[in-house]
Amino acid sequence: METFMIILSGILFTIATYLILNKNFLRIVLGITLFSHATHMMLMAINGLKRGAAPLLGEHADAYTDPIPQALILTSIVISFALTALLLVLGYRTYIELGTDNMKKLRGESHE
């Protein structure tokens, strides 16, 4: 399962990177979102999966899964959400002001 999940995140990383290198703004944002998904999956997988109960003491289980990656990922989910939202609004505003969402056109005139 772990190996499978790591390879799965690897595929997601590949697709996300390709999207990020795109010139279309929306695709870049999609790529970044995908990249964080892949990261979360990989973090989970590296720690071992399905070993013990959910980290809730009320379960009274013998073993719990490692709570630390979960805490990390929880923070990460929230922050990537903030990032996505900000980027989307930035793209929206850029388009309103400058009339394009193509990164190549957004690049300024070369100086000197």
Partner: peptide, 28 residues
């Protein structure tokens, strides 16, 4: 993977993100 908190958060965030994407979709 026995991560109920993550699942809940992810669900909420995903819903809002998709809504946001769609909003921007309208403008972009």
């Amino acid at each position: 993977f026995r991560a109920p908190d993550l699942a809940l958060t992810q669900l909420v965030v995903e819903t809002i993100s998709t809504a946001l994407f769609l909003l921007c979709f309208y403008f972009l």
